[in-house]
Design a protein around this nucleic acid. Sequence first.
RNA 1: GUGAGAGUAGCUCAGUCGGUAGAGCGCCGGAUUGUGGUUCCGGUGGUCGCGGGUUCGACCCCCGUCUCUCACCCCA
Length: 419
Amino acid sequence: MITSVKGMRDLLPPDTRVWNRLEETARTVFSLYGYDEIRTPVLEPTELFVRSVGEASDIVHKEMYAFTDRGGRDVSLRPENTAGVARAYVEHQMPQAGGVKKLYYVGPQYRYERPQKGRYREFRQIGAEVLGAADPATDAELLVMLFDLFTRLGFTGLSVSLNSVGSEESRPAYVEALRAYLAAHEGTMGEDDRRRLRENPLRVLDTKDPALAAALAGAPRVLDHLDPASKAHHEELLALLEASGIPYRVEPRLVRGLDYYTRTVFEVTAQGLGAQDALLGGGRYDRLVSDLGGPRTPGIGFAIGEDRLVDVLPEPFRRAAIDAFAPVAVMAIDPPDRAAALALAGELRRAGVAVDLDPAGKGPGHALKNAAKRGCRTAVLVGEKERQSGVVVVKDLVERSQREVPIGDLPRTLKGERP
RNA sequence: GUGAGAGUAGCUCAGUCGGUAGAGCGCCGGAUUGUGGUUCCGGUGGUCGCGGGUUCGACCCCCGUCUCUCACCCCA
């Protein structure tokens, strides 16, 4: 038997109904905020991620599906989508068009990691990016949009964790202060944390070692080392969130794993996801576009882990998505009734009624059993009697009731019955 | 990449001391030749993940390997 590749999974019905409805909801919300969809390639030059996500980041140096194609090009399956969006933005001269560009995407991403709960080698992200807007109101509106989406999905009680990592200019001073503070603790630090202190000191703040976490309580905070402009940006963002009623928590130790973030960073975590509990993450990246050779352009965005989101989706939303699929079963009772059943099914579909045709003609017992099993809520029986009289039997499979309806009234009747 | 646990029927699982496998659910048929989910009766079900080793004999013990699960790492 040939099985799927490790870390890759099939999404099957009825789950795909939930995925589709989730994506539809996201598209609807995003367009309400003036975002347009962008689709970028799954395969990009490896160099793109080296320059954006960062050569030293784990994502790039040990998690990418990187290879040389038949033409000798060094390419990688995208491990995230912001870099691709920024690349397309520069490549297609979007800055020349002027103004602010608001884009969203939905699609698969790839990271070669050991699979575990909430983490797959192929996973999907729903994300949005705003390019060309530097003000804190943009950050605030992005978060407002996120909460709008999550509210429509039925979530309650979520809160966003927020921090500012400052600017390219102010960060070195902070890193020095942090290093100086941690020097005293280096002896008790684990191997992983010592490596992080060396390679990417900010990430030490993210440690899972309880002893070190306790020691970090007294560590210098990025927020106290912000340059004046970043500090003003951060404070205005908080004020705007306050005014918008968005629940947030400032987490001075929140840092992100991608090198391109500046100023605002945020994430939302959820219960029930195990160790991989980040539902979404994002932040501002004012240097990214210029690093990729474009004009100096501020940007901010987020990515939602769709696989994780589906895992914790509120039950009513999931239920509604699954129940929305309920075609009307049209069934031929005997083989001579097949043509009539086929014709009736066609007529109903032209009228916009979803029909699951069972033309088997093996008798109503068989057909009704199958229809119920496939999730149909209504069945229309076509037999010799019905063909003669032009009146068909319509059964409600849930209430187990039935009535007779003239064929001409059928489209209206069936549509009227549907919510 | 590291660590731990698990792979037996379509699904959930049992399988004693090593003697070549069982249950429930499902599925198919019948009771019911034009009316379903209950009930009853009958039937269908398996390279015991894969490869090797030990043994007269392996689902069981040993080695390897693959996959899954969880955690580390990392992150969505």
